[in-house]
Simulated scan of single mutants.
Amino acid sequence: MIKKVFLAVFALSILTVSCSDDDNPVTTSRLTLDLDGLEALGPDYVYEGWLIVDGNPVSTGTFSSVSFPQSFTVNRAQLDAATTFVLSIEPAVDPDPAPAETKILAGDFSGNSANVNSNGIVADFASASGKYILATPTDTDDTNEESGVWFLDNSSGSAVAGLSLPTLTDGWKYEGWVVINGTPISTGTFLTANTADDNAATSPYKGNDNNGPAYPGEDYLQNAPAGLTFPTDLKEKTIVISVEPSPDNSTAPFTLKPLAHVVPANAMNHTTIAMGDGPVKSLTGTVSR
């Protein structure tokens, strides 16, 4: 009798589990990111992934680590229906549930994977080029001309923009840098190459006579950061153009650096110098579902 009761209970338990599985199918799935070239953000910002489902963004979660691959648990139906993956940079404490303007990677799903890159969502820097001169036009001293860099081309006898850069999407700005003894010092942020940069009138480094040419650039003449001395000599120093999140997440250069150049030791002041490709012109990765 006991045996019959046990078998009946066992059969009922199997039936109950079976019905439970049928009534509650798996509702989540795993999304895996394998991304190249991302750098850690400042402490107040995080990366956030987004699925585009029926034209609407659905968050896949935030992360700070830039070690990959990383996996996230997401709604299975939404993941199956997603057409595109987007990665943005968001405030760590974010009152806005929508994606920020600063989007860094995107790509469409083809089957169960999406090849993502920065070219379309930030800009395509394949054809970016740059020129600059050494000069210090913000003072009247002509003995320190190698202590300033200006992104202009005066090879024709008249100054024109020295940078040929694509228009950035919303949420990004360009920034110039010189690296002096391992320390990157900004020349200022800008959106277009044919106007002065954002700190033209407020730079602590320029001389006191004027703001300089109407192009991005900087004179390093006073108020040197700790450990450095201004005026300086920019020969054999590295000049860089980076692409920065706006608002910026760090005082250091961001990972996207489409143009760079080491100033030749024999560089002549007031003479146009061509830049070369920077170390990172695009970011890529794979997203799998």
Rank of each mutant, 00 (worst) to 15 (best):
R30P: 01
P99M: 11
E244L: 07
D153K: 02
K206V: 12
S250W: 08
V160M: 07
Y132K: 05
A40G: 00
I104E: 08
D197R: 12
K257E: 12
N117A: 14
L134E: 05
A128R: 01
L105A: 06
S186T: 15
E244F: 04
V53E: 07
G182C: 13
M268I: 10
M1D: 03
A161Q: 11
G111W: 07
S88A: 15
S13A: 15
P204M: 09
D108N: 15
P245V: 06
V160K: 12
D139Q: 08
S59E: 06
D80P: 13
H261Q: 11
L41V: 09
P225Q: 03
A135G: 02
V116D: 09
I133E: 09
W172E: 09
N208W: 06
L134N: 01
D170F: 02
A193E: 11
G55A: 12
V74A: 07
V122E: 09
L221D: 08
N208F: 08
A274W: 05
A265N: 14
A201T: 14
A200N: 04
T143N: 05
A226S: 13
G37K: 00
L31W: 02
V179Y: 06
G176Q: 04
P57I: 10
L165E: 05
D22M: 01
S288K: 13
S155Y: 03
W50N: 13
T28R: 03
L234W: 02
A267M: 06
L152I: 04
E218Y: 01
T73V: 12
S186D: 07
K131M: 02
V17P: 00
P57Q: 11
S156K: 11
P204V: 11
S147V: 03
P91T: 05
E146A: 15
K173L: 15
P166Y: 12
A135N: 11
D219R: 03
D108E: 15
G276V: 07
K237Q: 11
F72C: 00
P231Y: 01
A265Y: 04
I121T: 14
A224K: 02
V243M: 08
A135F: 08
N144I: 09
P43L: 05
P95M: 11
D277N: 14
G276E: 13
A161F: 00
G285N: 10
A224Q: 03
F125I: 05
S164A: 13
V53R: 07
T62N: 08
P245W: 05
S113L: 06
S65C: 01
A114Y: 06
L35A: 06
V149F: 00
S164K: 10
V58A: 05
S282M: 10
I104K: 11
L7F: 14
F109V: 13
G157I: 13
D277L: 09
S127H: 07
S242L: 08
F125Q: 07
E218W: 01
L31I: 02
A201K: 12
D22W: 01
D22N: 00
P91Y: 05
L221E: 15
T102G: 05
T272K: 12
I241D: 02
